[in-house]
Design a protein around this nucleic acid. Structure first.
Length: 515
RNA sequence: GACCCCAUCGUCUAGUCCGGCCUAGGACAAUGGCCCUUCAAGCCAUGAACACCGGUUCGAAUCCGGUUGGGGUCGCCA
């Protein structure tokens, strides 16, 4: 039943009963299509908790293209409900990176729009008032369980078929619940999922997907701190912002029934669901920073052209035609349809991306390449950062290029420093663990000034009980493949977080692999 | 483990909806050659896949079922 006609356009939720004659059906379908065409509104909703992710650009691209194809709007919304991890810095980096790849939005936190604010942290009252309605109607309830109890519960459920929340507080009497809340006892609010039956949804790419309700636990909607979880905020905002199509990564598919239930209890009509395949590492697991560079800033720093990256992302799961893989954004919009999606998770392949980048680079004329090089690292700004690092060392200008070569390279060859990398009192594993551990520390180090880096390095040295000097030397060699360099932290600061982390990780892995 | 999704060359994919035109096409990578002072580029060529089993059918990569395999989710993260 599901098999027939799925994933090839023919699939449309809604009435198609045999009650209408064919020509009328066609007319209705046409009307519906026109209506949908006029009203398409989609969004990308990144969480500002880290580096701008290549997966965000991927999903944003398909949202953008779909919106433009149908003359609709593409909205950028910031999902910063995780107060502990969200940073303004990360948000700015995400916007900058998205703009760098060539995407733009019709509404967003930076440009405003009729459905603002576009930052969830500024919409708290909306979630509060919406969730109050659910509690009043009994569709949601307060849960007073402590984190400790939940952890115990999960430990107990390990290996069992159901591992979600056991519903303990669902039976708490309303008066008691009100009283405890009034008395200041901390609580979260959970959605009271139906305990029987099933929830079905129609995914544009897969057709009907069904879930037994017994498999779905009572999702937290409001956290103890009063902030909403993704599930609540996303549904409330999508509804209020008039989002018609939710185009997001497949990892959301299993929580979609919770969202479907939320739309139901709110009495709102749900958007169309479109779950995109996940970008993968070479081993087919979900793309991750340990196995792939995932920061858009890395791709920029590594000299990829944004239009090449965007084109490549457009070939991930989608094809414009059987024998064609190079196309512009405009061509993609022109040709776009979800009917040409394939659902196997595409492996993100740097080698193929590089080949495509080569095509784009070589298609430029000479001065085109020159201006790209200037935008990249051969501009005054970058050169000026280099000068303080070499002015004490330079005697003639002809030494500048060889002296600063490492600031213009990508991945390095560590063979020349191989024997020095692992000191006599250390094993290769020590050094690799150290490097990889330091990279993890740098992942959350947004301030990349030399002073902040030095503080971070000293703290890390203490943590792993290494002499700071030894750590500094290992980091120096990993970041530069040399033993003699300009001052370490100034060097790292100029190289930037993406290049530094990439080199340190590669060096760590290289050391580990070496016999 | 439970639930959900997926399944064509090593990788990205075309073909699958509407079964025959598929001795399965293109691209990246690989290999060999041509070109060339060298390298790169370019050009030519080669190897490389319908996961498996069963069913439906005159005919299946294509439809159905099962198996296997891979992935995702199971957070007061998104």
């Amino acid at each position: 039943m599901i098999g027939a006609g799925r994933r090839r356009g023919t699939h449309r939720p809604g009435g198609s009963g045999p009650l209408l004659p064919g020509f009328l059906l066609t007319a209705v379908a046409r009307l519906r299509t026109v209506a949908a065409t006029m009203s398409v509104r989609v969004r990308i909703a990144p969480s500002p908790t880290g580096d701008p992710h290549v997966g965000t650009a991927y999903i944003a691209l398909f949202n953008y293209v779909f919106a433009k194809k149908h003359g609709g709007q593409f909205v950028l919304r910031i999902e910063d409900t995780d107060r502990a991890r969200s940073t303004a810095d990360s948000e700015a980096a995400i916007l900058r990176a998205l703009r760098w790849v060539g995407l733009s939005w019709d509404e967003g936190p930076d440009i405003g729009g009729p459905h603002g604010p576009y930052r969830q942290s500024e919409r708290s009252e909306m979630y509060q008032s919406e969730v109050a309605k659910l509690v009043a109607s009994g569709a949601a309830y307060r849960c007073f369980c402590t984190a400790e109890r939940l952890a115990e519960m999960r430990a107990l459920a390990k290996g069992k078929s159901f591992v979600g929340y056991d519903g303990k507080c669902r039976g708490v009497d309303r008066n008691e619940s009100d009283g405890r809340a009034a008395a200041g006892e901390p609580f979260v609010v959970r959605l009271a999922m139906p305990k029987t039956g099933e929830t079905t949804l129609v995914d544009r790419l897969r057709g009907e997907v069904r879930f037994e309700n017994t498999q779905i636990d009572d999702q937290i909607l409001l956290k103890t701190d009063g902030f909403p979880t993704y599930h609540l905020a996303n549904v409330v905002d999508d509804h209020r912002m008039g989002i018609t199509h939710v185009i997001r990564a497949e990892e959301w598919l299993s929580s979609t029934p919770k969202h479907v239930e939320l739309y139901k209890v709110f009495g709102w009509s749900a958007p169309e669901w479109i779950h995109m395949p996940l970008l993968r590492n070479a081993d087919k697991s979900k793309i991750s920073k340990r196995k792939n560079p995932v920061s858009l800033d890395y791709y920029r720093a590594a000299g990829f052209l944004p239009e090449a990256l965007l084109n490549y992302l457009g070939t991930m799961g989608w094809s414009i035609a059987g024998d064609r893989e190079k196309f512009t954004l405009a061509e993609m919009i022109e040709a776009f349809t979800f009917d040409r999606m394939s659902l196997g998770g595409p492996v993100f392949d740097l080698v193929k991306l590089s080949a495509m980048n080569a095509d784009y680079l070589r298609a430029l004329d000479d001065s085109g390449i020159v201006s790209r090089l200037r935008e990249w690292r051969l501009g005054d700004d970058y050169l000026r950062q280099l000068v303080p690092l070499v002015r004490q060392r330079i005697q003639r200008m002809d030494e500048f290029v060889p002296m600063t070569e490492l600031f213009f390279s990508g991945d390095l060859d560590y063979t020349p420093v191989a024997k020095d990398l692992v000191a006599k009192n250390r094993t290769a594993k020590d050094v690799a663990d150290c490097l990889l551990g330091f990279v993890e520390a740098l992942d959350v180090q947004r301030d990349f000034s030399h002073a902040a880096l030095e503080a971070a390095a000293r703290a890390f040295a203490e943590k792993i009980a290494w002499d700071p000097k030894e750590l500094f030397m290992v980091v120096r060699m990993a970041a530069t493949a040399r033993k003699a360099t300009p001052p370490l932290f100034e060097t790292l600061a100029v190289l930037g977080r993406d290049l530094v982390r990439r080199r340190l990780r590669l060096c760590g892995e290289w050391v580990k692999r070496r016999p």
